[in-house]
């Protein structure tokens, strides 16, 4: 037995979802920030910062889904059935958000506001639904070893709704710091002003989740608050505080690219915290990645291609970002 296929696949899926959260996070965040920007030319600029890349960003979500399907089909079946309602809401939100990129510029000027609203509404819906689905996932899924054995509304709890709101802050913060990096002038200044309250909101959310989950879920408490785990994991909350402080300074001194990088670090830390809480569970609270793994023939076949192609994807994705590097100005567009 060479490599642990399930372990490798879990890492790939986690990486894919991480890429999705970060990349579509700032896309969706821009949709949320439309709420605070009403000037049409500024909205054009905001949208144009992501128009060439949003589709690639969203593809990571498809990879997450397909990877889960390939490597852990039972987990795919059980988790998606359990979270069907929030996931459908997310998909409908992503439909409105995605088509708005094209439709907004194709609509007649007096109808454009319709697609602005679709962009905002779709982004809101998709973000909250993703957060709720995440919360519903963390809190556990009824699983009898073969099927999902719970009810259609099991996911609906105060905790999952809270996660939905928490994700709004995370994505809006990704969006505002992305725009700080990609824009200039009045729009950029507005983003500087919005970023600090968003950051405080996110830190409060992270703190609350960090208290809530160990209190509500004993297995998560055991993971964090036993020795020597505590020593290993202690850097995570400490780093969150450090990055938070650094971000505050970067905003105060009006750094351009640094705030975005720091928010990426913050999101990564939050994601790691989540990973620590759940690992190696794939259907919380009990089923591990090895229990619901696909046959080795499936995991192996898909892995060969993935390990070969993923680096190439990362290369041309980076190239595409490079082509569209720099600030976006008014009037820059193809439409």
């Amino acid at each position: 037995m060479g490599i642990d296929l399930s372990l490798t696949w879990a890492i790939i899926i986690l990486f894919g979802l991480m890429m999705y959260v970060v990349m579509d996070g700032f896309d969706l965040g821009i949709g949320l920030l439309f709420l605070r920007v009403h000037d049409e030319p500024e909205r054009d600029i905001m949208m144009n910062t992501v128009a060439p890349v949003w589709d690639g960003n969203e593809t990571w979500l498809v990879l997450g889904g397909a990877g889960l399907f390939a490597a852990f089909p039972l987990a795919y079946a059980v988790v998606l059935e359990a979270l069907a309602i929030p996931l459908i809401v997310m998909l409908l939100g992503l439909i409105f958000r995605g088509v708005a990129f094209e439709f907004r510029f194709k609509a007649s000027p007096e109808r454009r506001h319709v697609w602005d609203k679709a962009f905002i509404g779709g982004s809101l819906l998709a973000t909250v639904a993703q957060g709720v689905a995440l919360g519903g996932y963390i809190q556990g899924i009824a699983f009898d070893g073969v099927h999902f054995s719970g009810g259609a509304l099991d996911w609906l709890t105060p905790f999952s709704l809270f996660c939905g709101i928490g994700l709004l802050f995370a994505y809006a913060l990704l969006g505002s710091t992305w725009l700080i990096m990609k824009t200039e002038g009045a729009l950029q200044q507005r983003m500087y002003r919005i970023t600090k309250p968003l950051m405080l909101g996110l830190l409060v959310m992270i703190a609350l989740v960090s208290v809530w989950t160990p209190l509500a879920y004993p297995n998560i408490a055991a993971r964090w608050f036993s020795l020597p785990n505590l020593l290993w994991f202690l850097p995570v909350p400490l780093l969150v505080m450090l990055v938070g402080w650094w971000l505050w300074r970067a905003i105060t001194f009006q750094d351009t690219a640094l705030p975005f990088v720091l928010v990426l670090a913050l999101v990564f830390l939050g994601y790691s915290g989540l990973g620590i809480s759940l690992w190696p569970t794939i259907i919380p609270p009990d089923a591990s990645i090895w229990q619901v793994a696909a046959p080795a023939q499936s995991q192996g076949f898909a892995l060969v291609g993935t390990l070969f192609i993923l680096p190439i994807i990362l290369m041309y994705t980076a190239w595409s970002y490079y082509v569209f590097r720099g600030k976006v100005k008014s009037g820059d567009a193809y439409h």
Binding site: P52, D55, G56, L63, A66, F69, A70, A294, S298, L310
Partner: peptide
């Protein structure tokens, strides 16, 4: 999904990796 995901899943994964990313990655340009 639980019955045939071991076949359909890898095929869809290959579709995402070899097609969707390729389309999306070059569509912007």
């Amino acid at each position: 999904s639980a019955f045939a995901g071991s076949v359909t899943g890898p095929l869809l994964t290959y579709e995402v990796l070899t097609a969707f990313f390729l389309e999306a990655g070059f569509l912007g340009v």
